[in-house]
Write a protein that binds this DNA or RNA. Structure first.
Lengths: 147, 147
DNA sequence: ATTCTTGCAAATCATTTGCACTTTA
DNA sequence: TAAAGTGCAAATGATTTGCAAGAAT
């Protein structure tokens, strides 16, 4: 379920892909829809597990292929937030990530004006993207610990 | 070779470990020295490959064990900067990282007053660490491209 | 029709684990 | 000497690769 609770029309998703020069397929549309509908920063495997029942014949290879392609086209960003596995997120430069070291969940944190990070980049370096990554305890886990 | 070009005495390294409640061993001292002498954000395997010739009998398992222990004690930080493998760095909250997407090298960037990131963290969340991660092109690669 | 995508299985590669042996405090 | 560390080899788990069959333009 996405933020607005509406199910996006496949034709809209197809258009998104076309605009990025990505050939469409039922699988790619399903994966894109999944990313839009879930704020869960999923791994390739999570996507596969969730989609497989409703997407007959979907293979994990295709999930990997599609995500890699989406990332190359700038549609999604690859979060390397956890040592072990790669996580994915719809590309959106206006937020960073907070990872709770207690429950392991990853939360978005708003980081509006990215340009303010420019000053940290030494001259000579050409920055393409900025990402703020914070580690700590989320509200739920803070509560549990204090009770 | 470290920044000052001096070879640190083993007794000093041993003291560092002891202060952190880490039992010492020849391997741990070698790994710590390596981290101090190299600003290369190495992976466990790079450390192993570089140290193996001069550290008879060193095993990759020990490199992993030591790094995990150092990280738990706050001596090093685990950089999850690349999808594939974990990278390590002497802990130092006063810098972020810049990864050149052309040559793959990782550079430190000074990010002095961390507290300035606090404002991005929504209330209720308890932040332990902040890390700014920038992606782009390093000066060397900028030069090569324009020539 | 031609080119790109898919999916299976096998291959890789980083990291972890089990366990007997060695070292440290 | 008790407790912790080490190293080998095997196990695990995520991701990639080769390749034949299927789908899109």
């Amino acid at each position: 379920m996405n933020k607005t609770g509406q199910r996006l029309k496949s034709t809209d998703l197809i258009e998104v892909l076309r605009e990025l020069g990505i050939k469409t397929s039922a699988q790619r549309v399903a994966i894109l829809r999944y990313l839009i509908d879930n704020d869960s920063h999923p791994s390739a495997d999570m996507i596969y597990q969730d989609l497989a029942p409703s997407t007959p014949g979907l293979s994990k290879t295709t999930v990997y292929n599609s995500l890699k392609l989406f990332a190359a086209r700038g549609l999604v960003s690859e979060l390397t937030i956890d040592g072990r596995e790669q996580r994915y997120d719809l590309a959106d430069p206006t937020h960073g990530h907070f990872r709770c070291t207690t429950c392991g969940n990853v939360f978005d944190i708003p980081v509006h004006p990215e340009p303010r990070f420019q000053k940290f980049v030494p001259s000579g370096y050409q920055a393409d993207s900025y990402h703020l990554y914070v580690t700590g305890t989320c509200p739920d886990c803070v509560r549990k610990k204090s009770s």
